[in-house]
Design a protein around this nucleic acid. Sequence first.
DNA 1: ATGCAAATGCGAACTATTCTCAAATACATC
DNA 2: GATGTATTTGAGAATAGTTCGCATTTGCAT
Lengths: 147, 147
Amino acid sequence: MEDQVPLSERYLKTMGRRMTPQRRLVVDILSQAEGHLDATDIYERGRRQDARLSLATVYRTLNILKEAGVVRELHLDDEHHHYELDHQDKHSHLICLSCGRVIEVDSTAFAEAAETIGQLYDFRIASAHVELTGYCADCRRKQEMTD
Amino acid sequence: MEDQVPLSERYLKTMGRRMTPQRRLVVDILSQAEGHLDATDIYERGRRQDARLSLATVYRTLNILKEAGVVRELHLDDEHHHYELDHQDKHSHLICLSCGRVIEVDSTAFAEAAETIGQLYDFRIASAHVELTGYCADCRRKQEMTD
DNA sequence: ATGCAAATGCGAACTATTCTCAAATACATC
DNA sequence: GATGTATTTGAGAATAGTTCGCATTTGCAT
Ligand SMILES: [Mn+2]
Ligand SMILES: [Mn+2]
Ligand SMILES: [Zn+2]
Ligand SMILES: [Zn+2]
């Protein structure tokens, strides 16, 4: 689960882009992260290793990695985006509209369906992203109590 | 395809919220729209029928309708959100990272998988949203020509 | 009809993200 | 290994989507 860096470098080269220490750092941080990081999280962690890293570079890097299909941009809430590496095992997100909790679920079935659709529409899928928004069991229970 | 209004009203009541002319108007605009509207689209169309409608109300209404599961918030690009009614036939979006084109595809299969997952995790799904980002056939062709 | 919590409008405020541009640097080529 | 150039970076200013504050209005339960 460590070295996503060489792989990412290949993706970048394919797009005619360069590998830089800053980009290496962002990929590295994402590959070591447990959860979903936002741009500021990445920026703060990055500064610990490179005190001159700028936030603009973080954003630029994330956008490039997104276009390369290396990174997924998540819309877990409306405040800002979160990011995760797109390689790891296929999973999707259940997002509770009430408490904001994010439950990760396996989505092998979704991934297969996506594959089929991609072929059907002659569309090269870089990233398949399923968001199921709704209400978790806890919140529904609380809801019922106030009725 | 017309009167989504009574249905929406029921959803609102369930959440202890009121039906207002402004909310009626937003639902009505969405139900008559062909494509995906952003907040400003809705605001401008709304002003034609109610010259005092405010943009803040449009945003507030969309957020409430989203929580009620009446409206889906789409992340078609990074500029702003787009919205569509969540009732109509199940479909998903292929979003080209190069040209921004949005292709609508049937996703009955996705919807069924979502249903199963919801039950498995005891999660009441309000909205299932599949975004497949990647590169459309046209853009891939253009890409190859510049290599 | 009455009362009150909820919703609206307006502008100001917030803040995530992008832009600008001079300085630094990756990397293809020699 | 040195050179040249297109790419990338950092810093801050600028942009723009979205939310907030508050006085006023209004839906709707009683
Ligand atoms: Mn995840
Ligand atoms: Mn659509
Ligand atoms: Zn919840
Ligand atoms: Zn395209």
